[in-house]
């Protein structure tokens, strides 16, 4: 049962994080790859704040404030750089954050990390936590459904096709894109916080490129601006590699095979649906 609730929790964390990636990458065509940064930053900020003795509420405020600053930096880059340079910038931010975490070991514990992270009392057990996370995931799906039906959602979809046409209607594509990046950052932050409550251990391997590969794969497989596609895509990407556990493979291989699985899915989906996903050609 513990395994099932863990998978439910993983599905929920990934769904919340992927919603942000779906809005930016799949729906609006903004290749924002800074999601692992805000995912990890939120977790680190909350845990470090709590280590200084502040309450959970204050720690969460500090955490979300840190994510807001990070998202505004990303927005500034989005407004100033070309589309491809922005993508590279956000990719580089993952490496920069990883280096900062490893270097600032007095705060972050460096490569050894921070152990013994306690869960809040209201989600003290894995079952309660998993159910809480699942409720959050449902809310996230409903939020995306609402977003896609509003002017904001329509403008996001339209931007992917033709930014000039959107602007000729009096809609600021830069403002819409900036809002999408901020929402994406905060969805990743929420996912990071609830994930660290489950793992109760935080080190530089939390987040990073593996998370990026996972959410980008989900966003690309989801492709269409439909919540059910996002939910199905998350289910497939999170649960399918679990089959590898039941094969008699050395544990050192399983992690790499999971990455290989994501890479193959990406290649297949990009080959088959690249025209639908990327309305404009992109060269990085």
């Amino acid at each position: 049962m513990g395994y099932l609730f863990t998978q439910l929790a993983r599905f929920s964390e990934t769904a919340i994080m992927s919603m942000g990636a779906h809005l930016t990458i799949a729906v609006s065509g903004i290749f924002f790859l800074g999601i692992p940064v805000t995912f990890s930053l939120a977790a680190y900020a909350m845990v470090i704040a709590q280590n200084f003795g502040v309450s959970l509420a204050v720690a969460l405020i500090i955490s979300f404030s840190a994510v807001l600053i990070a998202s505004l930096i990303f927005v500034s880059a989005y407004l100033k750089l070309s589309a491809d340079s922005f993508t590279v910038f956000t990719l580089a931010s993952i490496l920069a954050f990883d280096a900062a975490v490893k270097s600032w070991d007095s705060l972050t514990g460096g490569v050894l990390g921070i152990a013994g992270i306690t869960r809040p009392a209201f989600v003290g057990t894995l079952v309660k936590l998993a159910l809480f996370q699942f409720c959050l995931a449902i809310i996230a799906f409903m939020l995306e459904q609402v977003i896609l039906k509003t002017h904001f959602g329509r403008a996001l979809q339209a931007m992917k096709e033709n930014e000039h046409l959107v602007e000729s209607l009096g809609v600021s594509s830069r403002r819409i894109g900036s809002a999408a990046i901020i929402i994406s950052s905060f969805m990743a932050a929420i996912a990071g916080i609830i994930a660290i409550w489950r793992l109760q251990f935080l080190d530089p391997s939390f987040g990073g490129l593996m998370i990026l590969i996972e959410v980008v794969t989900i966003a690309i497989v989801a492709a269409k601006p439909k919540v059910r596609w996002l939910a199905f895509s998350t289910l497939v990407i999170v649960l399918l590699p679990e089959g590898l556990r039941f094969l008699n493979l050395p544990s050192t291989m399983v992690g790499h095979l999971r990455s290989l699985f994501y890479a193959l899915i990406l290649l297949v989906m990009i080959k088959n649906i690249s025209e639908k996903l990327l309305a404009k050609k992109r060269f990085i």
Binding site: H164, V166, E167, R174
Partner: peptide, 24 residues
């Protein structure tokens, strides 16, 4: 003024190619 601000001011535009959003 940015293009969206000029549109709000009252300058409308149709384009040479595809003035609609084909995926909507």
């Amino acid at each position: 003024l940015a293009p969206d601000q000029r549109a709000v001011l009252g300058i409308g535009r149709s384009f040479q190619h595809a003035g609609v959003f084909k995926e909507l």
